[in-house]
Amino acid sequence: MKRVALLIGNANYQSAKFPNIENCKADAVLLDILLRKRGFETQLYLDQNAEQMTEIISSFFKSLDQNIEALVFYYESPLTL
């Protein structure tokens, strides 16, 4: 069975309300490496805006069929309130 993963790490925000948190990107990159070692075909995207993410996610799900094991990982940032 084919194994695929969509990984999105967003850390670069245009708002003063949300600080840039580089761990989001670093964690997504590390997960990409780990999943590739485990036999996944990965698609890694960093710092995507809402429009880009909509297209990426839509395309990813359209590419799936019954013989594909899929994983989606979205990491935007840990917020401290």
Rank of each mutant, 00 (worst) to 15 (best):
L64Y: 11
F73N: 08
V4W: 02
I33K: 15
L31G: 08
T42C: 09
K62Y: 07
A5Q: 02
F61T: 10
I68A: 03
L35H: 09
Q48A: 14
F60V: 13
A28Y: 06
L31V: 04
K2Y: 03
S58M: 09
M1K: 01
L79R: 14
Q52G: 14
N23H: 04
I33Q: 15
L71S: 08
F73R: 04
E22A: 15
Y45H: 14
L46G: 04
A26Y: 15
N12T: 14
I57C: 10
A11C: 09
T80E: 02
L35G: 05
L35W: 00
I8K: 05
R36C: 04
Q43G: 11
N20D: 14
L71T: 03
N12C: 13
L34V: 13
L30N: 15
D65T: 07
T80Y: 05
S59Y: 05
Q48D: 07
A50S: 13
I57F: 08
A16Q: 12
K62S: 00
E41H: 12
L71G: 10
L34R: 11
R36L: 09
I33P: 04
L46V: 14
A50I: 04
M53T: 07
F61K: 04
L64I: 04
L6D: 00
A50K: 15
L35T: 03
M53V: 07
Q66C: 05
F61I: 11
L44G: 08
V72Y: 00
Y75N: 02
E69C: 09
K2L: 07
D27H: 14
R38C: 04
L6Y: 06
L6T: 11
Y74I: 01
F73H: 12
Q43W: 07
L64D: 03
M53D: 04
E51S: 15
Y74C: 07
A50G: 10
T54E: 10
L64V: 02
N49G: 14
T54P: 00
S15F: 01
K17R: 08
N12P: 01
V4M: 00
P19F: 13
Y74A: 06
F61S: 09
L44R: 11
L31W: 02
T80F: 08
I33D: 14
Q66T: 10
I56Y: 07
Y45F: 10
L64C: 06
K17C: 04
Y75H: 07
L79C: 06
Y45C: 09
V72I: 12
N12E: 11
N10F: 09
D27A: 10
N10V: 03
F73T: 02
V72M: 06
G9S: 03
E55C: 07
D65K: 09
L34S: 15
R38H: 10
K62I: 03
L79Y: 11
C24V: 05
N20I: 12
N20M: 11
L34Q: 14
G9K: 10
D32P: 03
T54I: 08
D47R: 13
L44T: 01
E76T: 05
L6Q: 06
Y75M: 01
K62L: 06
I68H: 05
L46P: 08
K62Q: 11
I21E: 03
L34M: 12
Y74S: 02
K2N: 10
N49W: 13
R3V: 07
L6M: 09
F60W: 08
T54N: 15
S59M: 05
F61Y: 12
I21F: 05
K37F: 13
S58Y: 07
K17P: 01
